[in-house]
Simulated assay, not measured.
Amino acid sequence: MMPTNHNEPSQQHSAGDITTGFKRCARCGDNKPLSDFLRRTGKRSSQGSRRGTCRSCRAQLKNLEQTAVLTADPRLVTDHSVRNSRSSVHPVAASPQPPTRTLPAPPPVEGPDASVLRPNRQGKIRMRGRTDKGSRWHQEIDLELAVTLVQEHAAVVVNRNTIRRLYSNKAFRRYILARDRHTCFFCGNYGDTIDHLLPRAKGGHTTPVNCVCACNECNQSKADRNLEDFIGDS
């Protein structure tokens, strides 16, 4: 005869909570119906997936953010200790100040204006730069793209037929995260990813003007939506 496992009822009950439409809130720790959780959005979210925080906890935190006055330096919210604030049982003391969503100033760039650019006989502008390992590369791009890269401080004019990219891929990522102090542009929490304000699918480019620091959750939720649409739904 097989020995009786006294843990089986509790395991079945735990599995039943998931299959019957219950979910544990990441903030208060209570098991609540799935209807108490907002749906996840974005390309990577599966069908029917829900956010980790229930509606009541979200409403409570929103009210606290609107009425609380931080006595500490607001720059302290960029500390790495804020990473685990979402999963703590009492995260009120660590909740960051609501972001002002002020676009950062572009870096100062010296050089000729983009108006001096002239395409070659093929109608192209030569662009050159360096890879992450320091190797040189070059390619030909349209005049419109070259002007945009110069105006948005991602490249400088070398001569009327050539521009030079200022950052490699890794250097650009380090620059944006350091510029924004690892603070998510959308929610104010700790961020370690780069998001395009105007999505690349809609014509945006990887430039200091169009890119901001974002947390992983906001980056996935925004997906390819415009900034105005995403902020309106949040």
Rank of each mutant, 00 (worst) to 15 (best):
M1Y: 05
H6L: 14
N7Q: 11
P9L: 13
H13R: 10
G16D: 10
G16R: 14
D17P: 00
D17W: 11
T20L: 12
K23N: 03
K23H: 06
R24I: 02
A26V: 14
R27T: 15
C28W: 04
G29N: 11
P33T: 05
P33Q: 02
S35P: 01
L38H: 12
R40S: 05
T41F: 01
T41M: 03
T41G: 07
G42N: 08
K43R: 15
R44C: 03
S45V: 11
S49T: 13
S49K: 11
T53I: 12
T53V: 15
C54F: 02
R55Y: 01
S56V: 11
S56C: 04
Q60C: 06
L61N: 02
L61V: 03
L64P: 00
Q66Y: 01
T67I: 11
T67R: 11
A68V: 09
D73A: 12
S81E: 09
V82F: 07
V82P: 00
N84A: 13
R86T: 08
R86H: 09
S87P: 01
P91N: 14
P91Y: 10
P98E: 06
P99A: 14
T100I: 13
L103P: 03
P104W: 05
A105M: 03
A105L: 13
P106F: 09
P107Y: 07
P107N: 11
P107H: 08
P108H: 10
V109A: 13
G111S: 08
D113F: 05
V116C: 15
V116P: 01
L117E: 10
L117D: 02
P119K: 03
N120C: 13
R121E: 15
R126T: 06
G134D: 01
G134R: 05
H138V: 08
H138P: 02
E140S: 01
E140Y: 03
L145V: 04
A146K: 04
V147P: 01
L149R: 14
E152I: 10
H153T: 11
T162R: 01
T162F: 01
Y167A: 08
N169A: 06
N169S: 10
A171F: 00
R173F: 09
Y175W: 14
L177A: 06
D180I: 08
D180V: 11
D180Q: 05
D180G: 02
H182K: 06
C184N: 03
F186K: 01
F186V: 02
N189Y: 12
Y190E: 00
G191R: 11
T193A: 03
D195T: 07
H196C: 10
L198K: 14
A201D: 09
K202R: 15
G203Q: 07
G203C: 06
G203E: 09
G204Y: 07
T206A: 12
T207K: 09
P208G: 05
P208R: 10
V209D: 10
C211I: 11
C211S: 14
C213Q: 01
S221E: 15
K222E: 12
A223C: 14
N226K: 03
